[in-house]
Design a protein around this nucleic acid. Structure first.
Lengths: 198, 198
DNA sequence: GAGTATCTTGAATGAACATTCAAGAAAGAG
DNA sequence: CTCTTTCTTGAATGTTCATTCAAGATACTC
């Protein structure tokens, strides 16, 4: 008797991870209890521990899923179907709107978790830093491409531009948490855009 | 028999609040236990509850103390004893060095608590937002003064300059948590400075 | 020095928490 | 249909936490 094919877990891993993501974004990692997570994911404690080892493992898995989802979103914004400046502006506008919404589900899990856990957990810190660095690199490539195509004229190196842009977005997201008027956020984003693209 | 003058609390309020500040900055509000706080402050639970109502009250008091301490620091940096550009550069350099140190005691409690608690606690959010707005206003005044004295030549309004500077610092502090090379932080701060003062 | 109002102490309390585990359900193989 | 493996379930566990409170210590008034 050889048993090769056995039962699979019944839940949808992506769905579960996206529910966990929103739960973590809503209350932060520490304030999100296992009870919150069982409610959000629909999984029972045992299933979570079986699939993800523990609460921290669920966070790490959710971070991976988040990273993947945001990557796909990024590729859609920079599909090279429109002029670079238009694509960059749309991308930034989207972030500004997420900020304005004040909806925790539209925040950035990476930044949120980084701020909460960077000093507490080296592995989480490393995972997040890597994702953010990849994002920064992807932006660098976009700036570089725009320079090569002649759309972007500047003597500043592409990686400096990407870095500054990233810093601006970190700042924007924190600024948004002081609940400023939407105009203020638009103006700040616009200034960031001008600083990079003129 | 009229008893007017009674015993005072024996602890030094400022010292206690500064200890609490560092404890909160080290682990964040939620992860800092009352046990951590009794160790850090040297106070017994009962004393803390008597003086500050509860853990949250201690945070609110610590935030007030932090705000006051940072205000004094700000006044020292902008004492009008040196050219505006020098003072601004020194101020920014100081922040960059705090970022480079990776010492949680040198982080910004306001930003840290804002990121952790903004969505959870309206009163804490309001207290922090007010402090940060005051800081921004103080910066606006410095830019305005520099324009009046002819040191700063720009057609951008002072409050826009201050806002952008503040956003940059929020961004810088988050960026620092990804542990970049010190040069990168210096370069980012320099670019922020250039963008405002040219 | 006696009396009293106030502050200090830290063990006790109960709630909330992450995690475990044994019993039950389900599905593929023969 | 039966057996075995795997997954699911959720109550039980032990820990940690914020908070309380009654007993003790202290300093001021008269």
């Amino acid at each position: 008797m050889v048993y090769t094919l056995m039962r699979n877990a019944e839940f949808n891993r992506e769905k579960v991870l996206r529910s966990a993501m929103t739960a973590f974004m809503f209350k932060g990692y520490n304030k999100t209890s296992m009870q919150d997570l069982t409610k959000a994911t629909g999984l029972h404690p045992g299933s979570i521990y079986c699939a993800f080892e523990n609460k921290r493992g669920l966070l790490l898995a959710a971070l991976e899923q988040y990273k993947q989802d945001r990557n796909i979103e990024f590729q859609n914004f920079f599909a090279n179907e429109q002029p670079f400046f238009t694509e960059l502006k749309n991308y930034l506008d989207n972030i500004v709107n997420e900020c304005i919404s004040c909806d925790s589900a539209q925040a950035c899990l990476l930044i949120k978790a980084l701020n909460e856990l960077a000093e507490q957990d080296d592995e989480v810190q490393a995972s997040i830093s890597e994702s953010l660095t990849n994002w920064q690199t992807a932006l660098t490539e976009q700036f570089e491409q725009a320079k090569l195509s002649g759309e972007l004229k500047t003597n500043r190196p592409s990686d400096h531009l990407a870095r500054f842009f990233v810093m601006g977005i970190y700042g924007l997201r924190t600024f948004a948490q002081t609940h400023p008027h939407a105009d203020v956020l638009h103006q700040l984003a616009d200034q960031l855009y001008q600083d990079l693209c003129v």
